[in-house]
């Protein structure tokens, strides 16, 4: 396979490398986005459970490996703030994803144009 690539013109080789890099970056952005979305879902679930509890319920918040006692109002506010922060992060990641997909599409089009003259001509 690498031998096949080394037979291609240098410009095409560069574009192929760039394509691989963009694909890797996109995968990383998608993984981060998925992680953030999962965390947001977890916050929604925890907030839902908190709402069912009485105001004086015994609640603890994890700090490292410790659990520290907290109050319903305080932890609810913290969760809301955390969710807002994550929501901003998701928007940023979504924009990055869109930009990367656009760049990938452009590069794929250019590569197809580069590679077409190289590939054998269709049956005559």
């Amino acid at each position: 396979m690498s031998e096949d690539i080394s037979n291609l013109p240098p410009q095409v080789q560069e574009r192929l490398l760039r394509l691989q890099q963009l694909q890797q970056t996109l995968q990383s952005v998608l993984a981060q986005k998925q992680q953030v979305e999962l965390e947001m879902m977890e916050i929604d679930q925890a907030s839902g459970e908190l709402q069912k509890l009485a105001d004086d319920a015994v609640i603890y918040k994890a700090t490292g490996s410790l659990l520290i006692r907290t109050e319903k109002g305080k932890i609810s506010t913290e969760l809301t703030e955390r969710k807002e922060l994550l929501s901003t992060r998701t928007s940023i990641l979504a924009k990055q994803e869109e930009r990367l997909r656009g760049q990938l599409k452009d590069l794929q089009t250019k590569l197809q144009q580069d590679l077409n003259p190289v590939s054998p001509s269709p049956q005559q």
């Binding site: 916050i43 603890y60 994890a62 969760l79």
Partner: peptide, 12 residues
């Protein structure tokens, strides 16, 4: 007992 609810929140 204390049960974890996710997102670092645990409830008695």
């Amino acid at each position: 007992v204390i049960v974890g609810m996710g997102a670092g929140v645990s409830v008695e």
